[in-house]
Simulated assay, not measured.
Amino acid sequence: MNTRTVPETRASRLRKLFLTTLYISSFTFGGGFVIVTFMKKKFVDELHWIDEQEMLDMTALAQSSPGAIAVNAAILVGWQVEGLLGMLIAVLGTIIPPMLILSVISLFYNAFATNIYVALVLKGMQAGVAAVILDVVCDLGGKVVKSHSPLYIGLMVAAFAANFVFNVNVILIILAAAALGIVRVLLQSRKGGAV
């Protein structure tokens, strides 16, 4: 039995990138964090095209950039995997399903808005989405705790408290965390040490 693996061609990687983002976008409901979870499972755990730290960085960038987090994440993953063409393919795969679904829903909006069964389905989906988002929070929070970095752990606790206890605007929290990261990088580069 021949166990040699045939190297992937660029065309096959682009096709796989498009089909994967199309599939993920078609079957994930509940916003960006849900889609990022599935992207991590597919691109990091299964395909090994990017590593876990890169996915964490991309998630932070996608979250802190303007626009939909799913599209932002697709831009970053596509660029990392296959450059400009990969970025375009990943974005296309990500936007086609919601565009089609929303187009159909908009045609029948009045029927959907007043249908009790549709309302019940959406309520059930909310519970499932909440569970997936909680999974993402636990996964990302666990990685911060495992880093054993007092700075990162303190920042996570402070961001949580600022948002949920003091109702600070999320944009201010993101900007403050980004500023702290920039200061840390600048200080580390002056010392010549590792970041």
Rank of each mutant, 00 (worst) to 15 (best):
Q63L: 09
V81W: 00
L85F: 08
A90D: 01
L84H: 09
Q80Y: 09
L88R: 09
A73G: 15
A70W: 11
M58T: 03
D57Y: 00
L76W: 05
L61Q: 08
A74M: 05
G78T: 04
V91P: 13
L85R: 14
Q63H: 11
I75P: 08
N72C: 02
S64W: 01
E54G: 05
M58E: 03
A90R: 14
L76E: 09
N72A: 04
I69R: 05
A60N: 06
V81N: 06
M87H: 00
M87L: 14
G86R: 11
A90V: 01
T59V: 12
Q63N: 09
L61A: 13
V71P: 04
L88G: 13
T59K: 00
G83E: 08
L61S: 05
I69Q: 09
A73Y: 03
I75M: 13
A70G: 15
I69E: 06
G86T: 03
I89R: 12
A68R: 00
Q80D: 03
E82L: 01
Q80M: 07
L88V: 15
G83Y: 07
V81T: 06
E54Q: 15
G83P: 12
N72G: 00
M58N: 08
I75R: 07
Q63W: 02
S65C: 03
V77M: 10
L84W: 12
S64C: 15
V91A: 12
L76T: 08
A60H: 09
A60M: 13
L88H: 07
A73I: 09
P66Y: 00
I75C: 15
D57C: 03
S64E: 04
I69L: 06
L88Q: 11
L84R: 13
A73L: 10
L61N: 01
N72D: 07
L61T: 02
V71Q: 11
M58Y: 15
M55P: 03
A62K: 01
L61G: 11
L84T: 13
L88Y: 11
S65A: 07
I89H: 10
L56F: 06
I69P: 03
S65D: 02
V81F: 07
T59Y: 05
L76C: 14
S64A: 13
G86L: 09
L85Q: 13
V91E: 12
G67K: 03
V91F: 06
P66D: 00
M58F: 15
G78K: 04
E54D: 12
L56K: 01
M87A: 12
A74D: 07
V81G: 04
L88S: 15
V71N: 06
A74R: 08
W79G: 01
A60F: 10
M87K: 05
S65V: 02
A73R: 05
V77Q: 12
A60V: 12
A74V: 04
M87N: 01
A68E: 07
L85S: 10
W79C: 02
V77F: 10
L56Y: 05
N72T: 02
M55R: 06
A62Y: 06
L84E: 13
A90P: 10
V91R: 09
M55D: 09
G86S: 04
Q80P: 00
M55Q: 05
Q63F: 05
W79H: 14
G78M: 14
I89D: 05
L76M: 07
L56W: 04
L56S: 01
A73D: 10
V71L: 02
E54L: 09
